[in-house]
Structure formats: C-alpha cells, structure tokens
C-alpha cells in the first residue's frame, strides 16, 4: 500500500463526498482530493489536467446517477481523452441493477464496480491494490 497523491471523486451526493473524504483522511490514504459534482464539471476540470499531463489523479471514483451529465456520458467522453499516465477508475453506485453492472464491464477504463455504501473495508481494498 502506498499513499496516493491525488484522488478524484465525481458524485452529486454531498453526504457521499463528505463520508468518503472522511474515510480517506482517517486512514491517510491520499494527499489531496479533487471533487466534481457531475460529469460535465468533471470533464471540464479533468480535460486540461490530462492534456498537460501534470497532477493527473491516480484514482477516480465515479457515480452513475448524476444531473447534467451522468456517469455513462462522462465515460464516453473520458475514453476519448489521450492520457499517458495510468488512471484507475471505479464506478461507485447505489444501483444493483444487473444491467448497469454488465454495462460497466464493457468499458476498458473501468477497473471495477462498487455498490454503495462504500465501506472502510472496500476502500481499504481499493487502496491496497496500488
């Protein structure tokens, strides 16, 4: 396990963002966290970062059900960006719909699908994989 430099959370739910941030802080998993509240905001924020190839987040936690641009739409756009550094992306959703889980598997960028709530244990597993 190593300490991450930058993690990105894309979720419109303030409670999820709050608790996840707390979990990162308690365990000292990460130096800083980047937060976007929907897909469009995230895309606009991440695009220049990835193009400049500096301060690229190592981990992205992506919610599916969001206003303006949802997780799927974000993924479609995100996969078009050319990135030299490895970004690990997890979908973190409260949807247990098998259709969503299967669909997630079709994206090369998606490492895994985590069903909310994200717990101390599941987060520890994610960090351990680095």
């Amino acid at each position: 396990m190593k300490k991450l430099k930058l993690t990105c959370i894309i979720d419109d739910d303030p409670i999820f963002v709050f608790t996840t941030k707390k979990l990162f802080d308690f365990n000292n998993y990460c130096e800083s966290i980047l937060i976007y509240h929907n897909g469009k905001e995230a895309l606009e924020g991440l695009k220049p970062i990835i193009e400049s190839n500096e301060n690229v987040p190592e981990l992205i936690l992506l919610d599916l059900n969001m206003p303006i641009m949802d997780g799927w739409q974000f993924l479609d756009e995100f996969s078009k960006l050319k990135c030299n550094k490895k970004i690990v992306l997890y979908i973190v959703s409260s949807s247990i719909d098998p259709v969503d889980i299967e669909r997630a598997k079709t994206y090369r960028e998606v490492s895994n699908y985590i069903i909310k709530p994200i717990t101390r244990e599941s987060l520890a597993q994610i960090i351990d994989s680095f």
Binding site: S95, K116, P117
Partner: peptide, 9 residues
C-alpha cells in the same frame, strides 16, 4: 437507486 443510497449514507 434512491433508497439504497440514502440508507447507505
């Protein structure tokens, strides 16, 4: 989608 996220939170 909805209930689960609230109770999880």
């Amino acid at each position: 989608h909805n209930l689960r996220s609230h109770s999880g939170n």
